[in-house]
């Protein structure tokens, strides 16, 4: 799965779970998710579970942090690094 596929998959998940009715174009690769409260601490856990199931990676508690999950680009980079 390439970078665009990862971002697209995660974007679809976030739009359907947390931002129903929002314009998909408004959610860009650099839209802050955690620091603006779109993903709160509980939502982060759901995203982590989704990433683990969807991309076959194992995430540690200290990795569920804003640096790895704040934007779609961050998530993409994180998933690729875990897969590597």
């Amino acid at each position: 799965m390439n970078s665009e596929d990862i971002k697209s998959t995660v974007k679809k998940f976030i739009l359907s779970e947390y931002l129903p009715g929002e314009d998909p174009a408004a959610l860009t690769d650099t839209t802050p998710l955690v620091t603006t409260g779109i993903l709160d601490s509980i939502a982060v856990l759901k995203v982590v579970t989704f990433l683990e199931n969807e991309f076959g990676i194992v995430i540690q508690p200290h990795e569920a942090v804003v640096e790895n999950l704040n934007t779609l680009s961050d998530i993409d980079r994180f998933v690729i690094s875990k897969q590597a």
Partner: peptide, 15 residues
């Protein structure tokens, strides 16, 4: 209005 976390590279203001 939300300001969820103290962690991270910057602040909400940076955006």
């Amino acid at each position: 209005s939300s300001r969820e976390t103290s962690e991270g590279r910057g602040t909400q203001a940076s955006g």
